[in-house]
Design a protein around this nucleic acid. Structure first.
Ligand SMILES: [Mn+2]
Ligand SMILES: [Mn+2]
Ligand SMILES: [Zn+2]
Ligand SMILES: [Zn+2]
Lengths: 140, 140
DNA sequence: CGTGATGTTGAAAATCATTTTCGATTATAG
DNA sequence: CTATAATCGAAAATGATTTTCAACATCACG
């Protein structure tokens, strides 16, 4: 339930708080999985029926700029947005229900640097994502 | 220079060998970096000027199905295609010139399984990509 | 080597996601 | 409360990708 924090941050950046924004922010902030603009639109309209799709795009763009949400890349698309993690974390995603969980504690930088050396690359960043099946989707 | 192998494989799957396909296949097979459909179009037209963009899309689709090429995900887009690696490998990509190199030898499955256990996930797959600067782009 | 059945082609039209434009509306500083 | 500038949603514009279709080219078979 970080919606309040997100709204406070938007306000702190000089943005106005409107019902349309609140609907989008609350929808994304409390979703257990990454949502596409169109999914956000459908869900947020349950809270605020006159919301326009354009405002969804505009709000997601701002949330991304402020690092409150991030875009998630998956085999079936790369335009779904998820609440951003604190600090350096990676994603574990259920292939069935798409539930996303962050994890930390990977200590692989030495390995990555070593791989870089072999190919004469200076490694600066990495992406790591795990895919599997969550508890709820274990069967069926 | 795996273009010949790719063409042989296309033929083996019952597809006909045309000049348009050859131009696309050769372009992607010998590129040191992932190419978007539009980039493939521009490059392949140097070999076969009447090539249509539609054929580029159709050929890339087939190369992906046959696992000869794969789509590469990057911050600036996820529709660039690269020659697929043999077996299980991961990518190391130069952020400046986009040169892509495969590496193997990561032995992280135990760690991934452990992460999964903590969150009650059965981990089945993972994505790992490294980003940095290649030798040629070290300065400037 | 023909040759015909069938796969393939590129242009144009259709579709789909995203962005831009714009006049009306609304949040908020003062 | 009021004035002003930000924000809104509808509609139009854009850009990427897919579909349609009639002409064409490949290649199995004779
Ligand atoms: Mn990490
Ligand atoms: Mn691996
Ligand atoms: Zn699940
Ligand atoms: Zn480089």
């Amino acid at each position: 339930m970080s919606a309040k924090k997100w709204l406070k941050e938007l306000r702190a950046q000089g943005y106005r708080l409107t019902d349309a924004r609140r609907a989008v922010v609350e929808t994304v902030a409390q979703s257990p999985r990454a949502l596409t603009p169109s999914e956000v639109y459908d869900l947020a309209r349950e809270r605020y029926p006159t919301l326009g799709l354009v405002t969804v795009y505009r709000t997601l763009e701002k949330l991304e700029e402020l690092h409150l949400a991030q875009r998630v890349h998956q085999d079936d698309g790369c335009n779904a947005y998820l609440a951003h993690a604190e600090g350096h974390q990676h994603l574990l995603i259920c292939e069935k229900c798409k539930k996303a969980v962050y994890f930390e504690g990977d200590d692989l930088d030495d390995f990555f640097t070593e791989v870089g050396k072999k190919h004469n690359f200076a490694v600066k960043d990495h992406w790591l994502q795990l895919f599997g099946t969550c508890e709820d989707c274990k069967y069926g």
